[in-house]
């Protein structure tokens, strides 16, 4: 028994050893495949999510500014188109043309970036929520500088000198509100595209303010 059991015992001891080695041998490729699959899955995941983390999000300053400025611009386009159609002053017709085309083009830039970022062109947050201390700057849903429905009705009905003065006055106020928003965006945003367009708005609208003031003086004196 002792002689016969010894080889058996030795075999018993050897058996798990052999089994472990074969198991290790068969586990090797499985582990390699698993690592490969996990690596590929991680790579795809990182690839998919990195753009999401680097692009401004739905509640970002950038998205809020682009959405709100699109709405703000749209009203400038609306008022300028009215003046372009109805003003009897060639200089005002041209400045209205300039404002309408520039701002409608800028709306296109802003909407395209939102689309690139996979964001909706409209947000669910209230207007100006991206700007700190903006509570109270919204009156009846209107952002700073925006004309009221009554003012727009008056502009549509006006003609001659009254129309020219009304348009220039409303646009002056509109530019002041817009410049303030754009300055805040330059301050708060670190996206180079948003900074670029906001800075260009500040510059061009400040220049236009000078022209509007000159035209107002000219029209009022007429």
């Amino acid at each position: 028994m002792t002689v016969s059991t010894d080889p058996g015992a030795a075999a018993d001891a050897a058996a798990p050893h052999d089994g472990e080695e074969t198991a290790r041998r068969s586990r090797g490729p499985i582990l390699a495949v698993l690592a490969l699959v996990l690596g590929v899955a991680l790579g795809i995941g990182i690839g998919l999510s990195i753009p999401h983390f680097t692009k401004p999000g739905d509640d970002s300053v950038e998205a809020g500014f682009l959405r709100d400025m699109s709405t703000h611009h749209a009203q400038a386009v609306e008022m300028s188109m009215i003046a372009h159609q109805k003003s009897d002053d060639a200089e005002i017709v041209y400045v209205a043309n300039d404002i309408a085309l520039t701002q409608h083009g800028q709306i296109g830039y802003m909407q395209a970036w939102l689309r690139d970022w996979g964001l909706s062109p409209t947000g669910s947050e209230p207007a100006m929520a991206w700007m700190p201390n903006s509570a109270g700057s919204i009156v009846n849903g209107l952002m700073p500088g925006m004309a009221t429905p009554e003012q727009l009705t008056k502009l549509r009905a006006a003609s001659g000198k009254e129309l020219n003065i009304e348009f220039l006055t409303l646009m002056r106020q509109h530019h002041l509100g817009g410049i303030h928003m754009a300055q805040e965006a330059v301050e708060l945003s670190d996206n180079k595209d948003v900074d670029w367009i906001a800075e260009s708005m500040v510059k061009s609208q400040q220049t236009e303010l000078g022209l509007i003031d000159d035209l107002l003086k000219k029209v009022q004196a007429s």
Partner: peptide
Amino acid sequence: KKPGAKGPAGKGGGKGRKPVTPVKVAG
């Protein structure tokens, strides 16, 4: 044989196997 083999295996093979078992634990 199995019960017979296992009985002495634990005792008789103890000297030869003891180094093996710690290796298993470590592995």
